[in-house]
């Protein structure tokens, strides 16, 4: 897929910089987590989004604050892109009471209702119909909001995905389905699990407006999401975006995993050369939107925020175990 010149793309400079800074923030925070994780102080299954940042940044930058998002196990990126507090992410991973679910949910359940992150489930496809329910509620109440669900390519193998697609169309719900297709379910490639018809083609057959975009191109994702959200707000029903992307690290945890043998080191390195953050940074520079000085400032600011969040997480207090038992144990 060819990339647009950012200079005359018709998208506000401010938005383009936001796309970049959100991706960078996700990347830096995820890298920090990968660095700290082996110390065994963050003790919960953690699925990093390194390499997939453009999908979350692109979609969430097309949303208003009170639009809502519904996430899966790999939820850090969209939580951050939607405006979630990164201090609360770090605290949650450390299991602290200042975490976004007070240490109850862990990495797979980042939420922040104040910025519209309403749910994140570790059960594949779990939040897809829930997003449809939110959309139904907006429609009934005549609120011009949009509900978005993010899920991986494997989630569409659950029956509830196609049930949801059907009812969202029948009821013309203001919902946006975002499939982050990284071609893998844990270690199993897509071709072993699904028919060789592209995912968006299958969904299109229902009569759904679909877009297939390069999920490493934040602008392409943004434009598809912007159009889908505009349709939904006008009462024109649901849309589906298939964003093709690539997971750099192991399915769960902070390491590279080519040693497992299900994909080659070359394949991963090839994807890393097409890094969504770096390529966007180069395009911004080429278009004269981001000068070297601005870039450095932004990077420094983000690094500082990430360090602060990590410190905050580590230094926060654990929840008091007595409260748990008093509340629940007879």
């Amino acid at each position: 897929m060819s990339e647009k010149d950012l200079k005359d793309c018709g998208v506000a400079r401010e938005t383009l910089v936001t796309l970049y800074s959100r991706m960078l923030l996700i990347r830096r925070l995820e890298e920090k987590i990968a660095e700290l994780y082996p110390r065994q102080e963050m003790r919960c299954p953690t699925h990093l989004s390194i390499g997939q940042e453009a999908v979350a940044a692109g979609v969430c930058s097309a949303l208003e604050k009170d639009d809502t998002v519904f996430l899966n196990h790999r939820c850090h990126a969209a939580y951050i892109a939607k405006g979630g507090d990164i201090r609360k992410v770090m605290a949650e991973l450390y299991g602290k009471k200042t975490g976004c679910t007070k240490g109850r949910g862990g990495s797979m359940h980042l939420v922040d209702p104040d910025v519209g992150v309403i749910g994140a489930s570790a059960i594949l496809a779990g939040t897809i119909p829930i997003a449809c329910g939110a959309a139904m509620s907006y429609k009934r109440k005549k609120i011009k909001r949009v509900a978005v669900c993010f899920f991986g390519d494997a989630a569409i193998e659950e029956g509830t995905f196609f049930e949801s697609v059907n009812l969202a169309l029948v009821w013309q719900l203001p919902v946006l389905f975002v499939c982050e297709n990284n071609g893998l379910s844990t270690c199993t490639p897509l071709a072993k699990r699904q028919v060789p018809v592209p995912i968006h083609e299958r969904v299109k057959a229902f009569g759904m407006p679909v877009a297939a975009v390069d999920g490493n191109d934040a602008l392409a994702v943004y434009e598809a999401a912007r159009d889908a959200v505009a349709r939904a707000r006008k009462g024109k029903g649901p849309s589906f975006i298939e964003a093709s992307t690539y997971r750099w690290l192991e399915h769960v945890g902070p390491n590279f995993d080519w040693s497992l043998g299900y994909r080659s080191k070359e394949e991963v390195e090839d994807a890393m050369r097409r890094c969504p953050v770096k390529t966007f940074e180069e395009r911004l520079a080429a278009a004269g939107i981001l000068t070297g000085g601005q870039k450095t400032m932004l990077r420094d600011e983000i690094s500082e925020r990430v360090e602060d969040a990590a410190r905050f997480g580590k230094e926060s207090a654990f929840p008091d175990p007595h409260e748990l038992l008093e509340a629940t144990d007879g």
Partner: peptide, 16 residues
């Protein structure tokens, strides 16, 4: 187990 979903934090897992 106490009648609640399992918490993730080690602080609560320890008593759960």
């Amino acid at each position: 187990l106490p009648d609640m979903p399992a918490p993730t934090t080690q602080a609560l897992e320890k008593v759960f």
